[in-house]
Structures are given as C-alpha cells and as structure tokens.
Design a protein around this nucleic acid. Structure first.
Lengths: 364, 364
DNA sequence: TTGAAAGCGCTAACAA
DNA sequence: TTGTTAGCGCTTTCAA
C-alpha cells in the first residue's frame, strides 16, 4: 500500500493550538463554539486538505450514515431507475448509499447482507433474487436490529418486521390480459417468472384470474414459467414454438423476457405482432423505439425507490418497530404497436367487442 | 435509532473463555491457531450470529478493502455494463465496491470524491462528468495518496500519477465515417459531445479526420456539439432541422444521443434511415431491436471495467507509483439497418464504390 | 466556550 | 499457540 496522507484531527488541533474536541465540534457545526474559533479552525482544515475519517467517526458515534441497497441486476432499466431514486432520497438525508448487486444469486445476496451488516449500515433496501426463498437471512438481519425494506421483489413467505413497497402486479397483469381479451384474443400464454417471489406469483395469478373472469379456459401448455431474464424469454418462446402450439398473445413477465421473446421470434421467423402478439411487464426508455414498439405495463419505478427510502427512514428514526409499512403502487397499461388490434388469423371469432363485453361475468 | 445487536469480539471471547486476539485470529484465518480452538470459536460465533465491525477493523488495520467507483449516470447501458465488470473484479479480490453517481454534475462528483476519501477507500475508479474540467480535485486525491484510474472518460488536461483505460474513440468515429463515405454519403454531420473530455474530443476529431482523409469539406453547421444525453440528441437534431439544412448522415456521439435523434426525427416527420442516416457511439442490448436497428460503434464495455480494476490493483499493491498504465481498447463497427446503403436522394452522385475508392488520399 | 478523560471494536507487534 | 499492550481517529460525557 502506498503512503497515505494521514492528517488527523490531532494535526489540525496542534496547528491551531486547541484540542481535538474543539476541532471536532467545529467540523460538525456544534453550536457552542465561538465564531472566531470556528473561522480559524476551518481555515487550517482547508489549508491542510483534511477530511475526517469516516470509520473512526462511525465507530465512535455508533452510526454510519449509510444505507445499503441490494438489487439482483443493474444493467436493466427498471433497477437502474430504482437505484437512482434511492440514491437521491438518501443523499437528501445526508446518507451515503452502498449499492451491491446479487446477480440473481441467493448466495451472493447473503454475502452482501452480511457485508452490509458488518459495515453497520443504518438500514437496508433490498429487491431479492428470483430464487430467494430462504428467509433465515432476514430473520438474522432482524436479530441484528437493522431496519430493512423490500422494494418490488420480496420473498414468497411473509416476514414480519420489515416494510415493503411493491407494484400492483396482479392488477397490472389483469389489465393487460383484459385488454388482449377485449381486442379479441382467446389463446393467451405467459412466459417467464415463477411463484417463488411476489412479482412472479402476482403476475401469474393476475393472468390466470383475468382468464377466469372472462371464462376463458387456461391452457397450461401456454404458461411457460422460468426466470426473469432475456434467456428465459428466448427459451420460453423456443419451447412454445417447438411444441407446435403457439398462443396468439403472450404476456412477458419482464422487459428482458420480452427482449428474449423478440429475439427468438426473429430467429424462428415468427412475426410479432402479426403472428403472435405481446405485452410485457416493465417499460423502458427505448420501448417505444423497438420494432414493433412494445406495449407495456409500466411500473412506477421512481416512486418505488422514493417510497422505499421514506419508509426505511421512518424505521431508522423510530425507536422501536411500531408497525410495518406496506405500500402497493398502481401499474399502468401503455399500449403501443403491439396488442393494438387483433390480427386476422381466422382462428377465433367474435362478432364485435360489444358482444364480447357481455361474455364478461357480472357476478363474482 | 433502534437498539442494535451489539455483539463484539469481547463477547465471543468471554463466552469461549479466551482473549479477543484469539477470536480475531480465528476469524481472519490466521495460521497459528489450533484446530480445536478454531472450531470452538467458530461455533460460538455462529451461535451468536456475530459479524465483525468493518469500521473498527479498517480503522485498526488501516485498510478498508473497499474501492470507490464514480460514474456520471447509471440508467445507461454503457455504464451499467462497466459497473458490473468492476464489481466482479473487485469481488474476486475480496474488495467491496462503493458505487456513487455524479449525475453529470461536477459538484456532486467532487462531493463523492471527498466522501470516498473520507471512507478511506483503497482506490478509486472514475468516469468523469461531461463538464469536469477542473483538475484540482484530482491533485487533491493524489495528495491524499489514493490510487485512481480513469475509465472511458477523463478530463481534457493530462494529470500525472493516474492510470486510465479508454476506448479508441478516434478510430471508432473514423471507421464509422469512413463507412458512411464509402457507401456514398457526402453530407456528414455530428451531434453531441464537446471537447472538454476525451471521448468528445476524440470522437469529434475522428469524425473530422475521416472527412479530411477523404477530402470532403467539413461543414461546421452540421457539427452540433453539446452534451451526451438524450436531450442533447433531441435538441441537436431539432436545431439542424430548423436551420433548414440537414446532412444525409449523422454520427451520434453516444447511444442516448441517438435515441434523442430518433425521437426528434419522429416528431419532425424525418425518416431514418431514408431521409437521414445514422450511426451511434455505443451499442446496447436493444440496439438491434430498435426501429430501425441501429448501427453502432461498439465499445468494449466489460473489458473496460475489467482492465480498470486490474490497473487499479497494480497501483494499490505498488509501494510507490512507478509508472502510469494507460490502455486503449479498440472499438468495433457494427452495421445493422441504419447506414447499410446510400438512399437515393439525388444530391450527390458517385458511379460506384470502386471509383470512389480512388478518391481516397493515398499519401499521408 | 473549551478541554480532559474515557472509550467505540478491532488489529499489530511483541511476549509469554 | 495464546495473550498483553498499545493504539487506529474520532466522539461523548462531564468538568473547568
């Protein structure tokens, strides 16, 4: 290791001719310090280019002024938007954010959780991996007394003591499928996701519930579960294609999954939206420039991040956990070039949408 | 603040009936510890759910095992790919990465630099903002004795003492323009970027040099400099459009700029690539799904991150700075739907590419 | 308004 | 192989 410029409080204190305590107080803007003293100290601090040692400070103050953020992936529009929001929120409160990436790997996630605990962060915001079903790690965090908030993704099993901010995935999926049904589709499929974590479960349930609501039989072969990445989309579509039975409409469980589907469709010569139509969960900044412009279920990304920080800080400032905060934010259907009107395929027929409307169950 | 589970080395030591030092040694896998002792200690550590306090450890060891990473933006394919590579590299060496985002704001960048110094990170990797021209901050870092490596973007002025890993932007731009010329374009423009930082300077120079090489006059009105974001692309194109003179081909200085151009073109009813053709710097995972599929100058993103970490660690391990490492990685032209063949516009004419080839300067 | 004393939780050097 | 001693650089009482 290279020699470091180890200027300490002591050095400053000596130069000014006061005690460390005085300097420390000036630095933290403590009130009981005379203006001249403060002036003198600040001058020397600037001259010597001194920066307080965060470790020493945190150790002594028993407070790190840092929060930890764990996300499964970073090269993904959804997460980068959430991350930016969290950073901003934390910064406003003079907190640093320590970002870690689990790479969809529960082992790495566990390591990060421990590392953040070791760093004595004042709180953690996490979006779990698609495989996180072990909840012992969260019990451990709770035992450590570290406030934690789930954002967007959380484990299937409920864990008390932590807040959460999620999207109304069930309704989002429902809306999308309802739209597809209304424009005439009857053969509906879904690619990606699984029921290990909330987002998959809720989206899949939303999909199935919409079909039930409209009395359309669920064809299990058209529901190809899996993960949330591009590969899952590609393989899911490949599976469907090779099975010889492809639905008219597919709900992609995430934006990367949709990209994978687009790619597979291209490779297999299937035209989207002409042969198979598509809506995906999650919008991105380029969604509308894609060919075809993707229809999407837009998640309130920024809002998700902002609310998570808010809730976390309520927890951090609270002396004891009084109640858990759980917020569910609405999703919004954005129709673009995919899924605008039913393509003529001559497979299913309904006379017109109005007639179809009557099909809908009014009871329930 | 909530009560925290403050288990310390002392607690473990007491429970096992040994000294803190013994426990500390076990935890760090020190060799001179008996196997039984190690076993006993580990058991208690696990039972009590103890995690060492990083602050105390770093303070005592005078080593943080953290590196800092500063990027201008995060919701951007290029940076997220670099970030992932840096994280991986650091993790392999058992280092944590502290990611900070400057939001293209030099002030925030300076704050982050100070915060990282205060955290006593062992090294810093930075991609500067598009406006960073003040290099005092880097001199300060050097004075602090913190190793630093620039990745992709660095300030215009040379600063000794720091390594860098960049893309061969000049050649990348040159290749793109050369390609455009070869397929017949003569009215060439450029949008975005400025000469404050290397990437802008080199790309613009590469653009101009290619024109010179092929004896094509540079039309200053078609070079609309600015920043590196989507807005810059939008406004740049708008400016061009409203000026009444739009080139046949545009080199977009970054991928976001290209997105902005695409959007503006759509708004103004200009067809790409039919009316105006386009190549942009920087590829993304969706580039080929865009409409039209964007031709791009692909940067070696992962490689950039990996090499930056390598160089940084050479610096960190070095006792003194012996030499600076500067690496330049090649860019690769990826032609897709834009810029494949010259569209018929009847403005410029060349009989065929071969004849054109002869135009090229052979001297030089 | 200032400062002395007593740690925060850990590790490094050196003894035992 | 284990333990003792002495800090790392800062903040927090509490006294002056």
């Amino acid at each position: 290791m290279r020699r470091r410029n180890r200027i300490t409080l002591e050095d400053i204190a000596k130069k000014v001719g006061v005690s460390r305590v005085t300097v420390s107080k000036v630095l933290r803007g403590h009130t009981d310090i005379s203006t001249e003293m403060a002036q003198k100290v600040k001058k020397v601090v600037a001259e010597m280019g001194y920066t307080p040692n965060i470790f020493a400070r945190s150790l002594s103050a028993r407070k790190s002024n840092m929060i930890g953020l764990i996300v499964p992936k970073i090269a993904h529009y959804f997460f980068s938007a959430v991350i930016e929001a969290v950073y901003e929120g934390a910064l406003q409160r003079k907190y640093e954010t320590i970002l870690t990436v689990s790479q969809e790997n529960p082992e790495i996630e566990w390591k990060h959780l421990q590392a953040l605990a070791a760093m004595r962060v004042d709180g953690i915001i996490i979006s779990v991996t698609q495989k996180t079903d072990d909840i012992e790690r969260f019990k451990w965090i709770r035992k450590m007394g570290i406030p934690l908030v789930f954002v967007d993704r959380k484990p299937e099993k409920q864990i008390s003591g932590f807040g959460s901010v999620v999207t109304d995935d069930h309704n989002g999926a429902f809306q999308a499928v309802e739209h597809a049904i209304k424009i005439g589709y009857r053969k509906l499929g879904l690619i990606g996701g699984n029921k290990k974590i909330n987002i998959g479960r809720n989206r899949i349930n939303g999909f199935e519930d919409a079909l039930k609501e409209y009395r359309i039989p669920v064809n299990k072969n058209w529901i190809v579960t899996g993960g949330y990445g591009k590969d899952d989309g590609y393989n899911g579509f490949k599976y469907l294609y090779e099975s010889g039975s492809v639905p008219e409409f597919i709900l992609a469980i995430t934006y990367p999954v949709a990209l994978g589907i687009l790619e597979a469709a291209k490779d297999f010569g299937v035209r989207i939206p002409d042969d198979v139509d598509l809506i995906c969960f999650g919008d991105s900044d380029v969604g509308r420039f894609l060919s075809p412009a993707l229809s999407a279920i837009r998640q309130p990304t920024r809002e998700l991040g902002i609310r998570a920080v808010e809730i976390l800080f309520e927890d951090i400032e609270e002396k004891e956990i009084t109640r858990e905060h759980h917020v569910i934010l609405p999703a919004q259907l954005v129709i673009r070039e995919t899924c605008t009107t039913k393509r003529a395929k001559g497979i299913e027929n309904i006379k017109n949408i109005q007639e179809f409307e009557d099909t809908k169950l009014t009871t329930k």
